[in-house]
Design a protein around this nucleic acid. Structure first.
Lengths: 362, 362
DNA sequence: ACATGAAATGACACCGATGACATGACATCG
DNA sequence: CGATGTCATGTCATCGGTGTCATTTCATGT
């Protein structure tokens, strides 16, 4: 591969002048520049970023560690393919900033993290991002000072900057919207209780109930998540069966995610219930392949993965440029409720109207 | 960040000796090595790969270009999240070989490809991989000689090494399995006819029919794919309606992918048909979120994305090491049929048995 | 016509590793 | 006992760019 000296010789100038043409950091006469550009094109010269980096100490690299690429194949994946959506948002911001992304995957093994970080440090990445497969707490090895790091979809004990989904608000907004449609008995089939998302969403659920003047009923809340293992469907069936046989059964089932909602559709229909007329269902994640394809299309909450990726990348870039060091807490990102047809409107204004008329006539 | 000279000074040796400890490429006395290792640990020294690369001309980098990360958010995505599964298999092989993966995303814009390749060349990647979102033909800019390249899930005119799904065999195996269950009228709702996969799968479909002694009926084949746009469901509904009203209607619907099968479940049920007793459905892709979660679980063909990633990475590594230059054609990767419960066995041996008993009694 | 400063270019050292080669200390052998 | 070989280590140049500083060219003002 040609070097800058080959180009200089071919163009009849010094290497430094070629450098100036490449970086436009000093004036160069038009004819000179054209001669240099011609030589570059003719020789197919591509500057060696390694050499450039040695003087400038700027690598233009950002390292990204994820379990994403292996997670997608695991059945333990609770919410779909989150890390990849996060990656997508991130990639866009990073490449717009002119930096290049190096990625590595832990393959699900946490002991891989330290060597991966070492490799990235050898390349002198300007920043690091760790993406988790679901909202969780992590503990990463210490980094040498001066390498900024952002956690996406996870957090740690030592206050590393992080970007998290606003699970509390998401569930709150969904339940509030369901109550606004006239429902009063809203069941909640949650994900595993040891997930931070479950705790937060339960808080949102209770807050929305309380704001809506509905009292909390523990009989309507049940965790039904076996992490994709055998028996999950039976667990769901049992929970739903028990709730439907309550004296005052739920009119809506909120599910921990859209995939669970898909199963719940099947279970409810196997009991002869018509969706959405006789029973309503809501999901979480806005996992579009499910939510849009199901009949009736599923009302759910968007888990704004792409936006989280964007925010995490922006936060990292700010830290790299030395601006964003003041911010400390996690950045919460919330997504909208996607209101589709799986939850009926129980206010039924026309029927109320008819009643009124009938009462008048009596 | 500390340099090799800092370490040398701290350990009381020359830089070259530190280098020897790092690379174990020459004998070093035990005490010396320990002193050096101590100094490295104490100073938190991490060798600068850029400097290393300048002498050795080995970057240890592999570049990967994909539309994956942006594709996932597009509705034009025909088969799920293929490129990401490919990426997963690839990453595993690449990192096992001790190399590091740089990735970049085209964001769906083909004019981004050339600059991305340029960036990779600046880093002197030892090889390049391009992953397409679905089996398709591509045209990539010329590379400088000496940089190996492999295409995954796509191919081009100029014979660049590629790794492709064996669509013909996949569809063949699925249809053969369906016929083996006693079906004789097998409809095929295909993806867009301009996709290479559709042509190949149709060949597989016809080959399996002919092997099974079933004649091909054009009335049972219809493309129903509008690329996720409005009207797709109506198109499906119409095709299914027409086929079911044939004098000799199909007993199985093969679908272009699992997502289409999900819609077909809904359409068939809305016509009052019971799955799988009255009508059978098969998919393609083994998109597990759908295939495993649906009731009845969907029989489908695995599109072996991870394996394709592995093969592509292996082929690239072989080319980098100078071995695999002889191979020319595309590497075809086939995946197994996943036989679940969505296709009934029409041979119904037990019912025949009962009949026999009854006849005996008469 | 000459001083002046900006524009345009070049010479050279340096970034942090490693390859080539040299050197000194020992062990082994004829 | 000197020759030879191996081990252990050091010296120095080099990879391909860019920062620093010096030098030349040229337009402009007086």
């Amino acid at each position: 591969m040609a070097t800058i000296y080959d180009v200089a010789r071919a163009a009849g100038v010094s290497a430094k002048t070629v450098s100036r043409v490449l970086n436009s950091d000093a004036p160069v006469r038009r004819e000179t520049r054209e001669a240099v550009e011609g030589a570059i094109a003719r020789l197919g010269y591509v500057p060696l970023s390694a050499a450039r980096m040695m003087r400038s100490n700027k690598s233009g690299l950002v390292g990204l560690i994820t379990g994403a690429i292996s997670n997608v194949i695991e059945t333990t994946d609770p919410g779909g393919l989150p890390d990849l959506f996060i990656l997508q948002g991130m990639q866009r911001v990073i490449s717009q900033s002119g930096k290049t992304l190096m990625i590595a995957d832990t393959d699900g093994r946490s002991d891989r993290v330290a060597p991966l970080i070492r490799t990235f440090l050898q390349h002198r990445v300007e920043g690091l991002i760790y993406i988790a497969g679901y909202h969780q707490k992590v503990a990463l090895p210490k980094l040498p000072v001066g390498t900024p790091m952002v956690l996406a979809n996870c957090f740690d004990d030592i206050g590393t900057p992080s970007v998290l989904p606003d699970d509390e608000r998401g569930q709150h907004d969904l339940v509030a919207r369901i109550l606004a449609s006239g429902h009063r008995r809203v069941a909640y089939l949650t994900l595993r209780v040891d997930m931070p998302a479950t705790t937060l969403r339960l808080q949102g659920y209770r807050a929305a109930l309380s704001e809506g003047g509905v009292s909390y009923d523990a009989a309507l809340v049940q965790d039904c998540d076996l992490d994709g293992r055998e028996g999950e469907t039976q667990l769901l069936w049992d929970a739903i069966d028990r709730m439907l046989r309550l004296p005052d059964p739920p009119t809506t089932f909120c599910c921990g995610n859209d995939k669970m909602a898909l199963k719940v559709y099947g279970i409810l229909r196997s009991r002869g219930l018509k969706l959405p007329d006789e029973i309503s269902v809501a999901g979480y994640d806005n996992y579009r392949v499910i939510a849009e394809t199901l009949y009736p299309p599923l009302s759910t909450v968007d888990l704004p993965y792409a936006a989280m990726g964007v925010r995490a990348a922006q936060r990292l870039l700010a830290m790299i440029s030395g601006e964003g060091r003041e911010e400390k807490g996690p950045t919460l990102v919330s997504g909208p409720v996607y209101w589709r047809e799986s939850v009926t409107d129980k206010r039924q204004p026309n029927i109320i109207h008819l009643k009124t008329v009938r009462e008048d006539n009596q």
